[in-house]
Amino acid sequence: MTRSGMKLLALQILVGVCAIAFWHIGSQVPIGGTYLLPEFFFSTPLDVGQRIIKLFVTGTIWKHLWITLTETALAFAIGAAGGIAVGFWFARKPLLAAIFDPYVKMINALPRVVLAPIFMLWLGLGIWSKVALGVTLVFFIVFFNVYQGVKEVSPAILANARLIGMNERQLFRHVYWPSALSWVFSSLHTSVGFALVGAVVGEYLGSAAGLGYLIHQAEGVFDTTGVFAGMFILSAFVLIMDWAVTRIENRLLVWRPQSTAGQP
């Protein structure tokens, strides 16, 4: 790590330390007879830390993490596959796209949370209702990106590819597919994030396992410490996933100027 990198990391840690210190003082030290952050509503950093450690030491957390990860992965895989297939299909068949346009917009405009009860009714309280919720979120992100990616292939590249003699199948493989894929990857952070949102919201609204379930259970008994512990684990989980996505992105998009510039 470089000197400036070290400095940045130190400052980032400092912000975290300050926030926790503020939280600790607010919940433990009365100012003018009142607590700024009453323990009942905000818990305390120490309690939350202890709860997180307990969750990991007793091993109860792993099952929940695994369930949430499975739901996220399935939602992303199914949503992305569907989005890519339909995106390509619509982009190559403008009439089809025009016919379905209002319906696509209608479904996309719908807040997905309202679909959760329906999915639970259809698919039960197991993982598939959560996967379905995630799919409805991921599908549209990927779909719009692929559609755009195929439509916005540079006319010069397309004309050039045709003139060096590519047929439709070769154009698909060497021009449309890589172009669409680059758009999918550029939205990878968003779509993976939404897959997780779908999973957690689904769990929150009704399930027997997962991080969303954990948070909801704690909330149900006014266990603020449990809610905060769940939130911190969820945040850490998102950070790790985001890091993994960045790694994959940098590997697959070496040809893109922005993904190689500024990399060590």
């Binding site: 010069a156 060497h174 040809w255 893109r256």
Partner: peptide, 13 residues
């Protein structure tokens, strides 16, 4: 063979 003013190269290759 046609050489364009804009870049016709495939950026992913």
């Amino acid at each position: 063979g046609y050489l364009f003013q804009q870049d016709g190269l495939m950026p992913w290759k």
